[in-house]
Design a binder for these strands. Structure first.
Length: 121
DNA sequence: CATCGAACCAACC
DNA sequence: GGTTGGTTCGATG
């Protein structure tokens, strides 16, 4: 079942919109330190939504730089996409710069993964 | 290992 | 109402 986030605005209750998800996801991103990464699926599981939705949220995000969406990669360790300037290449550079080790097969070491559910105590 | 297809849900057209 | 994601997972070669 989907996450039922409702927001009260102007005296009415409405279903969560993409902006609400963006707000939640960006809050989650704050919890991932430099040099660590997490995955779309991990966030999706924590929010109980489809992972593709997380990808969409990332893309819709308007501040790709200040919003550390580059720390989110695929669950198999591959870099994943990046809609900001520079694309995947730039994302990879950012990660390496932050100290994430990327193996020869272009995958991130699973050791640097953080499970979002582990952050919820 | 690489590739395939179905899953899911809000946006967008 | 149908298509589309910065994906995933299991099945299959």
């Amino acid at each position: 079942m989907p996450l039922l986030v409702y927001q009260i605005k102007e005296g009415k209750i409405r279903r969560a919109k993409i902006e609400d998800y963006i707000e939640i996801v960006s809050a989650i991103l704050q919890l991932i330190p430099e040099g660590r990464v997490s995955s779309y699926g991990s966030i999706a599981k924590a929010l109980n939504v489809n992972p593709k939705l997380i990808g969409k949220i990332m893309k819709l995000n308007k501040h790709p730089i200040v919003y550390p969406c580059h720390r989110i990669i695929k669950s198999d360790g591959k870099i994943g996409g990046y809609s900001g300037p520079g694309g995947q290449k730039f994302k990879k550079m950012l990660l390496e710069f932050e100290g994430v080790k990327i193996l020869k097969n272009d995958r991130v070491d699973l050791e640097s993964f953080i499970d979002i559910n582990d952050l919820c105590r």
